[in-house]
């Protein structure tokens, strides 16, 4: 598995760097269709959107692994679910940070209560509860059980929060609507390359974290064998 992780990490890093380099060096600066001005800060999109989508996928994976744990009762699914929540959370923090940078560049303020970033804020708070909950449980089996249940509850809540917040009008740019992608030509290439890069990168991180749990569990067993 170690080899697979290295390969995935390699492919991911190369694609991600290529995507971002392409976005900065080759792709033209995007033009705002309303004002006709060039918007340099649009380039954060090649990082912001892949990160956001990966974090959502990660939370869904956490729920899927949680459900598998409840069904099969194998420790590995709990490890995978926890790793996915941790990574989803880290990616979510990155989304908030890059989103805030974009806010500052586009609107002149660090924080706007606009729907998407607010959804993410609520998501972050929701999954912070996950960690607090896990850390206040003593037994490992209960930890895993409640962790799985909570990951499922939280994932069910994500689309509902998404729709609820949309009741309030938004000023966030919509990238993909029903008419297709808002990016064309070289911009789309740069975006897709970084999107794939991010996915590979994510999978390698997930597997690494998963392995770490396995190793630390082995360590605990060994410690117990030699008497603590």
């Amino acid at each position: 598995m170690k080899k697979a992780i290295t390969i995935l990490l390699g492919i991911g890093s190369v694609l991600l760097l290529t995507g971002i380099a392409y976005a900065f060096l080759v792709a033209p600066i995007a033009v705002d269709p309303n004002t006709g001005k060039e918007v340099f800060h649009q380039k954060i999109l090649y990082f912001h959107v892949p990160v956001a989508e990966t974090s959502l996928v990660s939370f869904i994976l956490a729920a899927v692994f949680g459900a598998l744990f409840l069904y099969k009762r194998e420790r590995k699914y709990d490890f995978l679910s926890l790793a996915a929540v941790e990574l989803g959370f880290m990616y979510g923090l990155l989304v908030e940070m890059t989103g805030m940078m974009w806010d500052k560049a586009a609107w002149g303020v660090w924080w706007q209560w606009e729907p998407r970033l607010t959804t993410y804020l609520i998501l972050m708070l929701m999954y912070s509860g996950y960690f607090v909950m896990r850390s206040s449980i003593g037994e490992d089996s209960t930890k895993a059980r409640f962790g799985a249940v909570y990951a499922i509850i939280a994932a069910v809540n994500v689309p509902l929060t998404f729709f609820a917040i949309r009741l309030i009008p938004s000023i966030h740019p919509i990238l993909f609507d029903s008419s297709g992608a808002g990016l064309e030509g070289p911009l789309l290439v740069a975006f897709l390359v970084s999107m794939f890069g991010m996915t590979f990168f994510y999978v390698s991180l997930l597997l690494t974290r998963y392995q770490m749990f396995g190793v630390s569990e082995e360590l605990d067993i060994l410690k117990n064998q030699i008497g603590g």
């Binding site: 929701m126 209960t142 929060t161």
Partner: peptide
């Protein structure tokens, strides 16, 4: 039911309940 079975007991409930119930509050 989850929070009562943890060491933090009733301390934990607001932390997990308020974010999960945010769609209810908004709607």
């Amino acid at each position: 039911t989850i929070s009562i079975n943890t060491k933090m007991r009733d301390m934990l409930l607001p932390l997990i309940y308020l974010p999960i119930s945010s769609p209810i509050l908004i709607c």
